[in-house]
Structures are given as C-alpha cells and as structure tokens.
C-alpha cells in the first residue's frame, strides 16, 4: 500500500511542478506550488525524515508560499482573479532543460550508487538533528541565525517606502 501511495505522491509532485512551470496563470502556478511543497514533505516522510517534512511544511507552506502570494498580490493591479504571465525563449529553454534532464537521468541510472544494504529506520531524527545542530554544527547554526537576522533587517529596509 505504501508503494502505491508513494507513486501517487510522486506523480502528484511532478504534475504540480509542471503546472508551476507551464501554467499561463500566475495564480495557478503559485497555488500548485502548494501541492508540490506538501508532496515533497510526504516524500520526506517516505525517507524517514519526519523533522524535515514538518519543517518543509511550516517554512515553505506557512512562510515562503505566503511571501510569494504577497509578492504577487502587491505587484499586480487586481481587477480579475486571473493574472497572466508571459514566457520568453520557451523553445530554447525547453531544449536546454531537456538536455540537462537527459544528462541527469543518464548520470543517475548509469551510476552504481553505494547503497547500504540494511535499511535505516530511525525512530525519530529530532534528537540526532538537535545533538548535531548544537554540537558539531554549532558555528554553522550561529552563522545561519546571523544570516536570517541580516535577511530580516535587509528585507524590512528594502521594502520600506523611503529607502
């Protein structure tokens, strides 16, 4: 059963990402990004990464997606519910991206990955992530927090009317 659910979610993620990439309506793009993010969170659960999955939902869905929607609403004159967006270099882009994808697939399938035999079933990753985050990766954590603070102040400063 898990197998079926996994492939359903897999297809859902791909289809919603395609809507993001190809939809003429910007609003449909941004709302199908919701499906992509939630689907990727489900994929994380299949990868035994429960903490990452929930972080994905709380930051991507609750934060970034809302920011993107705000960006759309604040940068359009909203008279109709539909917002058209235009694309350029579509055929060229298709060629380049197709080439990149083909190369990636060839690499992935042609490589013999050093997959370990025994499956890894953590009960929970939270404790391990916490230990690592406040142990070996403490400096990285602090740098990240300073980066976030800088981003916060920078964004607030940039978005002010009088710069």
């Amino acid at each position: 059963m898990s197998e079926v659910i996994f492939w359903v979610i897999w297809v859902l993620v791909v289809i919603s990402a395609m809507i993001v990439a190809y939809s003429k309506n910007l609003i449909y793009s941004v709302f199908s990004l919701l499906a992509t993010f939630v689907g990727v969170a489900a994929i994380y659960i299949f990868l035994n990464a429960d903490f990452i999955a929930v972080t994905q939902i709380v930051i991507y869905v609750g934060g970034i997606l809302v920011l993107l929607i705000f960006g759309i609403m604040l940068t359009n004159r909203i008279a109709v519910a539909k917002i058209n967006q235009s694309s350029f270099q579509t055929s060229l882009g298709m060629v380049v991206v197709g080439a990149v994808f083909v190369i990636l697939v060839i690499t992935i399938l042609g490589q013999s990955w050093p997959v370990l035999a025994e499956s890894m079933d953590f009960d929970s990753t939270v404790g391990k992530i916490g230990t690592l985050l406040f142990g070996d990766y403490l400096i990285l954590f602090e740098v990240a927090s300073i980066l976030l603070l800088g981003a916060l102040i920078g964004a607030a400063t940039l978005a002010r009317k009088e710069l």
Binding site: W10, V13, V14, A17, M18, V20, A21, L26, S29, V30, L33, T36, V40, I43, Y60, I64, L68, G71, I72, T75, Q85, S86, S87, F88, Q89, T90, G93, M94, V96, V97, G98, V100, F101, L104, V105, I108
Partner: peptide, 30 residues
C-alpha cells in the same frame, strides 16, 4: 533521484523562461 532531477529541470525551465520575477522565485524554490 529521478524525482529530484525532474523538479530541478522544471525549476530551471521556470527560471530561464519566465519574465515575472515572482515566477522566477518559484522556480528557484523548486
């Protein structure tokens, strides 16, 4: 990995073909 490659390609396509800045941001998120 295939799923990741698909998402990467679609995101790349979004980034290089869209004119709208927010749409490009969406591609980066992908």
């Amino acid at each position: 990995l295939i799923l990741s490659a698909l998402l990467f390609s679609l995101g790349l396509y979004t980034v290089i073909t869209r004119k709208n800045g927010v749409a490009i941001l969406m591609g980066i998120e992908l």
